[in-house]
Design a protein around this nucleic acid. Structure first.
Lengths: 205, 205
DNA sequence: TATTTTTCCTAACAGCGTTAGCAAAGGTAA
DNA sequence: TTACCTTTGCTAACGCTGTTAGGAAAAATA
């Protein structure tokens, strides 16, 4: 009697195809232009079927939100593991964060878009918590090894996260920096190096 | 023959009432829920009249975008003028920026919302340029007075802007920081002070 | 085979940005 | 004042959007 199992399997297939179709549409036309009707059309089902698998459009987007933080967390973790020294780890994390944002603009814009109903609190999204955890453990160790053990770890984590997000988001939305002779890539690298240098200094002394 | 003048005056009145009604609606229901029909209803005209004064909805929003940067630029300028020492000026600018964002969340979200079609390039929005100018002159002077005249001013301006935006935006969207015993206000102040201290250090040495 | 459950569609509701086309009002000239 | 022209502002529509009620058809169960 594998009927229930088969049904469950089929359900999952439809659900997955919704996500897959959505992702495809998003990459073609952006978040703004994703619509339930387009999804239904792509998966060759009628509109209400989509609502059998997701409560509403927001639920689909928040699925990608979680996926995004999962992926980002994994990338940071991976970058961290390429070094043993926590300072180098934080440096690698910084660059990995930057690369993720630029290689996955659609994800990033969804994850941090203000208009989007995505950024629930830290506590309610485990993927977000795990992502922050990678940063936290690294900074914690830098502080422990430094000369200023009194630093507030969470405050520093918060600052790190905020600042790297700021650096990324401003550069993500206005990619043409015309003030200088430097190339865009060099300018970005310089900004990042400058940032991480200053930040680490603030951690250990 | 003041007919033309009267007509112009009346046109301006309608235009202003559109902006005023929009602003009112935005503060009641947020950017997401602003609609041309609601505006038309509020100003007691039919929908197409709105389109006689603004090319489209985006044009109305971008009006507020410019207003926002004008206001922010003025606030920063004002804050700067309370001090003569450029380091103190930058400190005042930082706090003024923060206060602006928290006292005018609607403005700030419009100005930096990724989904919004607002952040055109620096060059094309004079209000944005003026706002950046306040930061630029201050940082320029700090560098000049410091021990590291070789610092790239524009790079530092860019970093400053990005980081303060990051600090603000993360705190604007997730106001509940539950990791610590500190109050929210104290936490924010601590973050800001920490940031500005580190940033200035990076400028002068 | 008859009954119940599940699946899935059509069609609609209420809203959106935007525009075509027409009526009425206002201004101008005879 | 009358005839004409220009401006103003309306109704109504087009083609979208998210969401859901209600019923038909298919599948599973008895």
């Amino acid at each position: 009697m594998g009927i229930v199992e088969r049904k469950e399997r089929q359900r999952k297939e439809v659900r997955d195809s919704i996500l897959q179709a959505s992702w495809h549409l998003v990459n073609e036309e952006g978040w703004q232009n994703l619509s339930i009707r387009k999804i239904a059309d792509a998966i060759e089902y009628s509109v209400p079927v989509v609502y059998d698998h997701f409560e509403n459009k927001e639920a689909i987007l928040s699925e990608f939100n979680r996926q995004g933080f999962k992926l980002l967390g994994d990338k940071l973790s991976e970058a961290k593991n390429t070094h043993a020294n926590p300072v180098l780890q934080l440096e690698a994390i910084t660059f990995a964060y930057w690369d993720f944002a630029f290689n996955n603009k659609e994800y990033y814009q969804l994850m941090y878009g203000l208009g989007m109903p995505t950024c629930e609190s830290l506590n309610s999204v485990p993927e977000l918590m795990a992502f922050i955890g990678v940063i936290h453990t690294t900074i914690e160790e830098i502080i422990k090894n430094g000369n200023n053990a009194g630093s507030d770890t969470w405050l520093k984590v918060h600052s790190f996260w905020s600042m790297i997000h700021g650096l990324v988001s401003i550069n993500l939305m206005s990619p043409e920096v015309s003030h200088l002779g430097m190339s865009q890539v060099d300018f970005n690298k310089a900004i990042l190096k400058d940032f991480i240098k200053g930040f680490v200094k603030g951690l250990i002394e």
